[in-house]
Nucleic acid binder design. Structure first.
Lengths: 107, 107
DNA sequence: TTTTAATATTGCAATATTACGATGATATAT
DNA sequence: ATATATCATCGTAATATTGCAATATTAAAA
């Protein structure tokens, strides 16, 4: 049915899965990497950097915004935003916790 | 067109995105967490633990297998497999590297 | 005020994902 | 040999994702 049965799973499992979903497209990885390496808020040229059409970039940015990884202003002519470091660190921690949680006695 | 333009992006971006895609469904998070916490290889009862139909679990396991996170035997009556710790650590490192790579001067 | 530049939204086509019933394959138990 | 238990595969339906052209919106510049 194409619909994930999210109600079967815990909140934390769904949250981690949602975060992973944002990272599950190379364009979004590239966008995040590019933004995170800037000295300041960025105010354009993602379309040139990534190589996808402007509406497509806009859509990807929206997915990234939805999980709170960006902060700044979004209305008007020029965007001005950057990585939300607090959220970034929280996601880093969530992934790290997940990966650390393995039983070292297995196999 | 529903097709990701993977050729636009670097190998490492695509690899990280592919790994994230495996983690982008709560069932696979739950499956991986369950397996990783076992003392031994597991040989059944994932269907009961997760609560999805057996073919669905089988499909999810296949996605997990595809990126090399499982090792063991898969044919026959009883499965017997567990987490591939080397691959697990590699993915942990890949995510951690990605998240560590942020410019602390931004904003 | 009219242009212009930058981003968002809409609508659509192509493809991917999720889920499960039915069925097939395999190995063990009876 | 037959039944049973376990997992894989096939087929299919429902929904989600990706991408872009066309268009709208917004704010600043001319």
């Amino acid at each position: 049915m194409g619909v994930s049965k999210t109600q079967l799973f815990s909140v934390s499992h769904n949250e981690l899965a949602n975060a992973a979903k944002v990272l599950s497209h190379p364009a979004r990885i590239a966008i995040l990497e590019y933004i995170s390496k800037q000295d300041n808020c960025i105010c354009t040229d993602l379309v040139d950097v990534i190589g996808l059409a402007q509406p497509t970039i806009s859509q990807h940015l929206n997915e990234i915004k939805k999980i709170g990884l960006l902060k700044g202003t979004f209305e008007g002519k020029n965007l001005c935003y950057c990585i939300d470091r607090e959220r970034w660190a929280a996601l880093q921690n969530a992934f790290n916790t997940f990966f650390s949680n393995i039983n070292q006695n297995c196999c």
